[in-house]
Write a protein that binds this DNA or RNA. Structure first.
Lengths: 118, 118
DNA sequence: GTCGATATATAGAGCGACGATATACAGACC
DNA sequence: GGTCTGTATATCGTCGCTCTATATATCGAC
């Protein structure tokens, strides 16, 4: 019996979602800060362009994985602060495991059963 | 000093390329057989639609990672048999390591430093 | 007063997988 | 003879998603 097929096309999006949600594990963040955090914490390996980030934030909020509210500031451009919902937390854990499993299976196929990991 | 940024968009393609090249490690294959092998060996987790597969094969041949030649058969539809070139073998090894590294870094960020792997 | 950093947002371009469709050969079944 | 299924390669149009570019807005520094 064949299992569910892996969605290759949606993988890029999955990775971006994981990155956004993971920064919110440490507390509330607004969009611009999320982009900075991801780039800093990954030493530039992962990076968000704002044309990618904001649509993702809107979609995640719509899906109930994050919750956003406009913070009131006396000075500066207004920000939208996002927090991780319990639904988002659960998704984050499940998705991380799923990515690990899929890539593990992929590397096993690519390297063959007898070949050790570098 | 920031390292090179990870290309999120090209990751789906990278995965498909890895799958194609890995089946050719076991010997020459034609396109249709590659698709069957990938699906069988992964127990249906990974899967190729022919609208995806053939363009990839053409591009890989153009890039010199695989080499194709039409097999002469008395009966049946003619096939194009592909073999892995030395360039393709090298790419396969390097790319597998790269995927592993990137995903490792991703999961480390997502799970945090103190959290063990499931 | 203009430049750069902060901050959010959208429209359009472009890349790549996917679904549909086409072509072609062979065996089975009626 | 005609149809259906399985083998086998190929292309086109669509769709989803990232990326570039652009727009708007606030503020400090020069």
């Amino acid at each position: 019996m064949a299992e569910d097929s892996f969605d290759v096309q949606g993988f890029a999006r999955d990775i971006n979602v994981l990155l956004v949600l993971s920064t919110l594990r440490h507390g509330a963040r607004h969009g611009y800060q999320i982009a900075l955090d991801v780039e800093t914490e990954s030493n530039g390996l992962f990076r968000f362009r704002h044309g990618t980030l904001y649509p993702i934030l809107h979609r995640l909020e719509e899906d109930g994985l994050i919750h956003g509210r406009w913070s009131r500031r006396e000075k500066g451009r207004r920000r939208k602060e996002y927090t991780l919902t319990s639904k988002g937390e659960a998704y984050l854990r499940g998705e991380a495991d799923r990515v690990e499993t899929v890539v593990d299976r992929l590397l096993r196929m690519v390297r063959g059963p007898g070949e050790a990991t570098a």
